[in-house]
Design a binder for these strands. Structure first.
Length: 465
DNA sequence: GTAGGGTTAG
């Protein structure tokens, strides 16, 4: 009977946690389940029994809100009797990766609340998080070896991508590909997609097309939308828009056509770039005729075209409204493009208003939103508004760009406001936005007073501790 | 949300 009550209660708590949009409020609910709707029937009932589901929900919410200390304390009290599973651990690891906190990602991988052994899935999540933090390839390789986990195709795909990101050369990726074959691990469509993209990014289109041929002829793996998108983008960058158009025809006129709107986004953007925006209209008609949904990326490509190629902010704004009316919800990329465009035209007050309106329109500003707004305002010299945006973004845990901070700090220094300077640097340190050597370099151009430079050094040491 | 692209930063 009491078991049933506990189950019911944790079920209600899970529902309440899911409903609660504010992560801090969700945490209060989680910590005080008996004061919530999950209240057990009598005060003499046994202590509240959390289900694994409750832990899942609260941990994910805290991770998404980057409330890491709170998340860690919840994880620490997660009883092993609930047998938490690896997918939850993976979410924690990738949250640290997204927050660019490689050390924390590593520690999470070894978290004692999750019973050993780890599988390739956890290892791959860690590697991907480290890749997001731009950790060099040798570090990823040693992480692999140190774990003693047998790598799979996904492991190699991440390592190959890391090789390209690090050195910009395709050779290491090819070596890893050979190693993977030698170890008897079969390449997947993702492996070939990674290779195609690598050759494309290096401007080596002949080899990229060769990979496409090899995968279909030798491995009997059909190129997918990712492969086509990479090739089309590379063709467009070389000015071969018509070749890209033909490749798109191949993609959609196959026996099993790929109905992916991403490739159309590339074409639409390219047409804007070369001043052929008139053809975008027929491109959209073609999609409709073929029954391909005009996806978010296509709308975003048009917004970018109006902003950056046409310099027509009103048209861009209208495109965003059309998108919404057409039932396609604008995302942060849509807004960020417009915010950037407005700032570039010196209309940072409009940009600021748009950002303030975003939550009401159902889109949370992200790190790019704030960086563009902050940079734009600093560029235009609107420093008192910049201070407001700075406080807001730091409060939400987003780090401003180095460039913006340089201008901002330069202004504070010209004002001679040492107290303000100290508080700004403390705020940056509080969100781990100060990394020692780079910042010292960035700031030494701005801070001439040795006393001020001492502040920077002091804070550097603090942020490293 | 274990991997790859397309629309924005860098």
């Amino acid at each position: 009977m009491s078991g049933a009550t506990a189950k019911l209660s944790s079920y209600h708590l899970a529902a309440a946690l899911r409903r609660e949009p504010d992560p801090a409020a969700a945490l209060r609910l989680f910590l005080n389940p008996t004061s919530s709707a999950a209240r057990p029937s009598s005060s003499s009932s046994p202590p509240f029994r959390y289900s694994l589901r409750c832990y899942d929900i609260i941990v994910c919410k805290l991770a998404a809100a980057r409330l890491f200390p709170a998340m860690e304390s919840v994880l620490a009290q997660l009883p092993s009797s609930l047998r938490p599973r690896e997918p939850l651990l993976c979410r924690v690891i990738s949250a640290y990766g997204r927050a660019r906190l490689p050390g924390a990602a590593r520690r999470a991988f070894a978290h004692p609340s999750f019973p050993a052994p780890r599988t390739a899935r956890a290892l791959n999540t860690l590697l991907h998080a480290l890749l997001a933090c731009r950790a060099p390839l040798p570090e990823l390789l040693s992480e692999c070896r140190g774990s003693g986990i047998h790598p799979d195709a996904c492991t190699y795909n991440i390592l190959m991508r890391a090789a390209v990101v690090e050195s910009g050369s395709v050779e290491n990726a090819c070596l890893l590909f050979d190693e993977m074959l030698q170890r008897g691990i079969a390449p997947t469509v993702v492996t070939f997609g990674t290779l195609v993209t690598a050759f494309c990014e290096a401007g080596r289109l002949e080899e990229a097309f060769k990979v496409k041929e090899v995968m279909s002829l030798q491995y009997n793996i059909r190129p997918n939308a990712h492969v086509y998108a990479s090739l089309m983008k590379a063709l467009c960058e070389k000015g071969k828009v018509d070749d890209a158009h033909r490749l798109k025809e191949e993609m959609v006129s196959n026996s099993e056509p790929l109905m992916d709107s991403g490739a159309y986004a590339t074409l639409a953007r390219a047409l804007f770039r070369v001043g052929r925006k008139g053809e975008v209209v027929s491109l959209l008609e073609e999609m409709k005729k073929r029954g391909i949904t005009v996806g978010r990326e296509v709308h975003n490509a048009m917004i970018a075209g109006f902003c950056e190629d046409e310099g027509d902010l009103d048209a861009a704004s209208a495109a965003l409204d059309d998108m919404q009316k057409g039932g396609c919800k604008p995302d942060s990329v849509s807004y960020n493009t417009l915010v950037g465009g407005l700032c570039k035209m010196g209309r940072w007050r409009d940009a600021s208003e748009l950002v303030e309106d975003m939550p009401r329109r159902g889109c949370r500003p992200d790190v790019v939103t704030y960086r563009r707004l902050f940079d734009g305002i600093c560029d235009a010299g609107g420093f008192s508004e910049a201070r407001r945006v700075f406080n807001e973004m730091v409060f939400k845990g987003f780090a401003p760009s180095k460039d913006g901070v340089r201008k901002f700090v330069g202004w504070i220094e010209r004002e001679g406001d040492v107290a303000s300077l100290e508080s700004v640097l403390c705020q940056l340190a509080s969100i781990n936005a100060l990394e020692s050597s780079e910042w010292e370099k960035a700031m030494s151009g701005v801070l001439h007073d040795p006393a001020e430079q001492k502040i920077v050094k002091l804070l550097d040491n603090l942020s490293l501790a």
